[in-house]
Structures are given as C-alpha cells and as structure tokens.
Design a protein around this nucleic acid. Structure first.
Lengths: 194, 194
DNA sequence: CGTTATATATACCGACCTGTGTGCTTAACG
DNA sequence: CGTTAAGCACACAGGTCGGTATATATAACG
C-alpha cells in the first residue's frame, strides 16, 4: 500500500530507484545545470547504480524530458486552485514569492533553463517546455476572462511574459526581480479590468 | 592603414587571427550555444590553429568573457542615439524588431544565454552580463527621466524586465514575443508619463 | 635581406562524458 | 519458500572536452 510510484510499464517491484533518480535530477539540474551534471555524479547522489539508471531511462535526454514533466503538477496549482481569492487576486498571486521569509532567490524557471541549455527546439524537453509555457498563458487568460478583462488572451500572454522576464532577470542580475514584475502586473490588470 | 585590430598587447603583426576567433565565437555561441561549441570546432571555423587561439585567449572562459564584451557598443546605440526621436519615442523604439522584413526570430540575448549556460555568478562573463543589464536599465531610466516620467528609475527597471522577458520567451516558445513586450511598454509609459 | 613575432599543422595529454557488459545480490510477492 | 524482477558493483568502450608540445612556415618591419 505504500507503493512509491509505478514504473514506466505499470509494474513495480524492488525499491524506488526511479524516484531517487528524478529527485536527484531536480536538485542537481537546478543547482549545477543540466549540461554540467554528469550521469556518474547524478547516480552517486541518487544512490543508484548507473546500470539501474539506464534501465529506467534509456538516455540522459529522456531523463531530462521526464525531469521537466515532473514540474507540471507542482508549481502553479498553489495559485490557480485558491478558491479563497477572486480571479483578479489570483492573477496577482502568481507574482508573489513562494515563502515570505526566504532569503534565497527564486530559482530559475527550469523550462527556460532547459530550453537555453539544450539549445535544440526539437529536443523532447524543449517541446515540453513550450507546451508548458503555453499552458500557463492559457490558464492566466482563463483567469483573466473570469476576472472580466477586456482582452483576456492578450492579458494572459502579457502576464506570462512578465513571469518569464522576472525569472530570467533574477538569474542574470542575481537579485530578486519578481516584485518589479508584480508591479507591472498590477498596472496591466488595473488597465484591463474595468 | 587597414589595420584590423590591435592585439592584446598593442602590437600587431601577421593577419588578424583574433578577429576571426571572436567572429567565429559570435556565430557559434549564438547558433549552437557556448557549452556545445568546442574549441576545435571554433578554431576550424575561424581558420585559426588552436595554438594561436590559446595565445590570444588563455582559456575558453576568457574567450567567452571577451565575446560578451564585444556586444556592448553594438546593440543599443541604435536606440538611444536617435536624436530624431523624442525621449518617449526612444523608449518605445527599444522594443521594435531590428528589421521589419525579417522572417527569423530575434536571437536570444547573449547575456542571458551566457548567464544560464555558465551557471556560475562568479564567472567573468556572468559578472559582465550583470553589469550590462544594469547599464541598460540605467539608460532606460535616464531616458524615462528626460521623458518626464514620474518614477524614472522604476520605469527603467520595468522596461528592462520586459526586454528580458521577450528575449527569454521568444527562445522558449520559438515565436516572436517582442510585440507583446512593446504593448506592455506602451501601457507602462502612458501610465508613467503625464 | 635578415630578424623576429605571429601564425601554421598535427599529435598528444588527462579528464570527463554518455552509455554497456557481466556477474552477483536482494527484495517483493505468490 | 522459491521465483523473479530490481538493483548492485565495477570495469570498460568510444568519444569529446579543454589545453599543451613540437617543429615549421611566413608576414612585417628595420
């Protein structure tokens, strides 16, 4: 009953190596980048033999794609699922920093990082990054429509651009840029919602 | 008299190998990325022996830093130096696409790309990227002040974030995002300048 | 012309990379 | 308990990486 996760084929036995690999990927790809993280190092952190790793993922590229896929249900639900907020408040909440007392910077958006590092629009991970970014813009647009925005699609795309700008700029400047993005968002939302 | 460029020590002899190296860097780092471009490949494109390359640049890291330094006088002068425009028009011009008839995407901002690829804030290139981004924000703020903005520094930082957002998003989505950024900029500028 | 810095070609180095092959152990489930 | 899939350790292949060594050619200048 304490099943960790089903394997790729629906079977499951043994102890969850797959989970440890993906968990190590999240840590290392975030902290050191995808290209600078070797499979040996990754396996060491995951406490998994290399042989096992390559039985779960046929290549590093596939692991990277799966690593990105894992973020999907993790990030934005904290925003769009908050029924205690009005649609308008939800749009603004997307720009709030995760926890108020964190001294660390917002980590670089893994989708942008992957797209830049892999440098190949055909790569499965790049395609997934694209899909995810479009999905975010769509959800923002839906929420904008709920909030009564004049041009919800346009507002959704604009807010998505602000999120990406804040992520990129935080990384380059090494200082938090989300408050700036939030300020812009407030202006856009005020202008778009009567 | 047709001196190509002075070498690092002010001497010059032979034929401009340094220029060819930097030129090849621009092409390859943009098209294939920094990490995915090997020195062998780079030297082949530059038509330069590896020995020569390492006499001009003691390491690849140094070459990367110099490569970034080369962009400085090339990009934004086309905007801020246009005396035919009012300050307000100059702010908007920063978001216009380079040439109207280009079917290609705006190339990824090399500073963001380098910061993400190198993944080390201490790297000389990362530090230079930071300085450059701050300089752009400063110039935008100055122009905003000229244009009579209420809070020029804030507007400058906001417009800089829009530029970075458009660059990052263009790369991830593989479709042009600068028009969206321009639309936001127009709103911000209208709101900030009475 | 002769000197000398600058460029050349090519082979090489050690480190690290992704990915396999082999043989053995162990945990889970019927 | 016995079967079987999951995982283990470890060595190694084949390639690419950044960077160096050696020995030779040539362009620029006095």
């Amino acid at each position: 009953m304490t099943e960790l996760e089903k394997g790729p084929l629906g079977r499951r036995r043994g102890r969850g190596a797959r989970e440890r690999i993906l968990s190590a990927s999240q840590q290392l790809f975030r902290d050191a980048g995808i290209n600078r993280t070797g499979m040996d190092q990754l396996c060491a952190v995951a406490q998994v033999s290399k042989r096992t790793a390559y039985q779960h993922f046929t290549s590093k590229d596939e692991l990277v794609a799966e690593y990105l896929r894992r973020f999907d249900p993790d990030i934005m639900p904290g925003v769009f699922d908050r029924t205690d907020l009005t649609p308008r408040e939800r749009l603004l909440a997307a720009f709030e920093l995760p926890a108020s007392g964190t001294p660390e910077l917002t980590p670089m958006c893994p989708y942008i990082a992957a797209a830049v590092e892999l440098h190949d629009p055909q790569h499965a991970a790049s395609q997934f990054a694209r899909d995810y970014k479009k999905a975010i813009a769509t959800r923002l647009a839906e929420t904008a429509r709920e909030a009564g925005a004049a041009h919800p699609e346009q507002l959704g795309e604009q807010l998505a651009l602000l999120l990406d700008g804040a992520a990129a700029r935080t990384r380059v400047l090494n200082s938090e840029s989300f408050p700036t993005a939030a300020a812009i968002a407030a202006v856009l939302i005020d202008n778009a919602i009567p």
